[in-house]
């Protein structure tokens, strides 16, 4: 990541920001435990909250950051989003098959899948909800789409026994 896209730390206040939004370090134990807590509590409603929160958070950051970065092409915005995602520790996502109409993305070494499996083993259904939301937010920002026009869901997940994590992003 180039310097102007790196997180900014205010050591006196204990605050780190990127694109004007706060970042906080947390580990896989907390991330997957909190997700499981929410899934247990909300059952079938949980994915909607988790994906929407991921989209909202990433969209806010990416909008702020792209305002600073003089965006360039949508493909470059998407690639910067993928690079940021990896720098933040969420895994390596391939966004080259995403476009204005949505598309497919694959994710290697998903933090949430790796964390879930290391803690509890496999789960019955895909579990990388944050990543799904992040991708929807990235497409919305790259193509300047209203957020309600973009949806995303994980169709394959390492934590559910698949060979890799993959996502279907749709634009309505």
């Amino acid at each position: 990541m180039s310097f102007h896209l790196a997180p900014q730390a205010d050591l006196e206040r204990g605050i780190t920001t990127l694109g004007g939004r706060r970042l906080v370090f947390h580990c896989h134990h907390y991330n997957v435990f909190l997700q499981r807590t929410i899934e247990d509590a909300l059952q079938e409603r949980a994915p909607r909250l988790l994906v929407a929160a991921g989209m909202e958070a990433s969209r806010s950051m990416l909008q702020g950051r792209e305002g600073e970065a003089q965006s360039g092409s949508a493909a470059r915005v998407l690639q910067r989003a993928a690079d940021t995602f990896a720098a933040q520790g969420f895994g390596r996502v391939d966004v080259r098959q995403l476009g204005e109409g949505g598309g497919q993305a694959t994710l290697d070494h998903s933090h949430y899948a790796v964390g879930w499996v290391s803690r509890w083993g496999k789960r019955p259904a895909p579990g990388c909800f944050f990543a799904a939301g992040f991708l929807a937010g990235a497409v919305a920002v790259a193509y300047r789409l209203a957020p309600e026009r973009v949806t995303s869901r994980e169709v394959e997940c390492v934590a559910a026994g698949d060979e890799r994590c993959s996502f279907r992003v749709e634009v309505w």
Partner: peptide
């Protein structure tokens, strides 16, 4: 502390993320 070649942050015997406060707040 930033992602390695795999896009993961192994440190302190953990996998870390430099995550969004907005995400934690919204879901919690």
């Amino acid at each position: 502390l930033a992602g390695n070649e795999e896009g993961l942050i192994p440190a302190f015997g953990l996998y870390l993320t430099n995550h969004y406060a907005d995400f934690y707040n919204r879901i919690s």
